[in-house]
């Protein structure tokens, strides 16, 4: 059998050197996507005129265009229109593309999570004279997040995996490193399988953390829960 398992284990550490950049791209894009997605959701639910219609189109566009093409448009295409962008770093382009695209998806998740919060909760906030923001922060958003966390967590995991597209515009990440390794040794299966296994492991860990978080957020809604 032509499979060098020893080689595969040898290159793990060399590929793992690039784990931080993967986590950095994935996590930063995710945080931005959550913030922008929340803002989108609030605008859509409030049906803010003009902005609302505009957002509908923007969201439709970013959901409709393949991620790789979006990255190419940001990295290769936009400097044509705005020469100042010609110095844009590949990593920045990836982060921008991933965060806007996923903000479009997450806005739908948050929008429906907002709708899942009972109207009575908003009224209770108003009746005790909380400001809109106080009510959102202390009562509404925690309930929105509780509903949204399962789907949002899945997007985070997806985004970590999507960062591997960065390799196509020259970012040196885990995949790029694996390609370099295999180019020298011609041991493609070992190299790519190694990256694949690492991504799988990340996914398993994140899914575990997500289920912990879901349990934590679920506490106030379980009958036996009495802790503050």
């Amino acid at each position: 059998m032509n499979f060098d398992i020893g080689y595969m284990f040898d290159i793990f550490p060399r590929i793992l050197q690039y784990l931080p950049i993967v986590l950095y791209m994935g996590t930063l894009s995710f945080v931005l996507a959550v913030i922008v997605g929340l803002i989108f959701a609030v605008i859509i639910n409030a049906k803010v005129p003009v902005l609302y219609q505009l957002l509908r189109v923007i969201i439709s566009y970013f959901r409709g265009v393949p991620t790789l093409i979006q990255i190419f448009i940001f990295y290769f295409g936009l400097p044509q229109l705005f020469p100042s962008l010609s110095s844009i770093q590949a990593i920045t382009a990836v982060i921008i593309a991933l965060s806007i695209k996923n903000a479009a998806y997450l806005s739908e998740v948050f929008r429906s999570a907002f709708l899942a919060v009972d109207k009575s909760q908003f009224e209770a906030c108003e009746a005790v004279n909380m400001t809109k923001w106080q009510g959102l922060r202390t009562v509404i958003l925690p309930q929105v997040f509780r509903v949204a966390i399962p789907a949002t967590g899945n997007y985070y995991i997806m985004m970590i995996k999507e960062t591997s597209l960065a390799f196509t515009i020259g970012v040196v990440d885990m995949l790029a490193r694996a390609k370099l390794e295999s180019a020298v040794t011609y041991k493609f299966l070992e190299a790519y399988l190694a990256v694949g296994l690492i991504y799988w492991a990340i996914t398993v860990v994140l899914a575990f953390l997500q289920s912990k978080l879901e349990k934590y957020m679920e506490r106030p809604y379980l009958k036996e829960a009495t802790k503050s």
């Binding site: 009972d118 909760q121 209770a124 009746a127 005790v128 202390t138 009562v139 106030p220 809604y221 503050s228």
Partner: peptide, 14 residues
């Protein structure tokens, strides 16, 4: 101060 028919307690607070 208002007391609601369906209590309307903040569900995420004790």
């Amino acid at each position: 101060g208002m007391v609601f028919q369906n209590y309307n307690l903040f569900k995420n607070k004790n």
